[in-house]
Amino acid sequence: MIKYIARRILLIVPVMLGVSVIVFGIMHLTPGDPAILMLGEAAPEAELAALRTRLGLDEPAYVQYGLWLGRMLQLDFGRSIRSNRPVTAEISQRIGPTVELALLATLLAVVIGVPLGVISANRPNTAIDHGATVLAFGGLAMPVFWQGLMMILVFSLWLGWLPSSGRHGGWVYYVLPTVTLGTSAIAAITRMTRSTMLETLSQDFIRTARSKGVFDRSIIYRHALSNAMIPVVTVIGLQFGGLLSGAVITETIFSWPGIGRLAVDAIRAKDFPVVQAVVMVFAIMYAVVNLFVDVLYAFLDPRLRTRYS
């Protein structure tokens, strides 16, 4: 098992290297000059040239890549072109709020999605099942920006119960962003739990258990659910990874100081050091979540455990 984990961790290295080449390549191949973006509509060529020199943008791309990679290996991500703030400081200030939000949204999704899926599967084609299906499709279909604004309209403006933006001042600030971010994950987890539960419930061992007179509740929660959980765990892991890097719209609507907004602002300003570092951080987080999910499989599925032991 340890060997398996070690191998998986080692595999992250070439993935990261690949990501670094791709992100660097894309940033330098797409149009956009940070010097022009900083100086704007009135910028004599001499000033543009001076700024490019200051920012190190006049070096050939491969030299810039080499320098960046070398510094990154020493965990030095450089400074933001736009603000001149150290990139590590930018990211460390912004990553916490995003992780917080993604964790809460995933937790919410699991707490609601798994039971809802189980109930649906257990009573297929009943009113409850249809209701859950409609809710789930609604949750998946609803655009996040629309849902966020509607929730602000209802809960902040009309009812006055919850604040509409920001993060300072306690738990109330977390409610609307968490629900907004978590809605599509609730839907995805409900659907996945329902379908894998239905599949599991139709298998032979369940029929055997039923014929032996095992209690219905025990069949569902002990026998069926633990078998049905493997694909659900994958979805939860993927959802969490997606929520980490995909919270941009939620962060923008609720003025949440997360890393998604940092990434978008940096891309717009062609702030190379920040974009590159943020993408690397996203990639590492995604890889770690995937690794975690894989390890979790082994715990959930004894067959995998024996294969890698």
């Binding site: 602000i152 902040s156 006055g160 509409s164 609507i253 003025s255």
Partner: peptide, 15 residues
Amino acid sequence: RPITEGTVRSIELET
């Protein structure tokens, strides 16, 4: 405070 969305900025003022 930076509040990017114009509508949210106005709702913050209203509330």
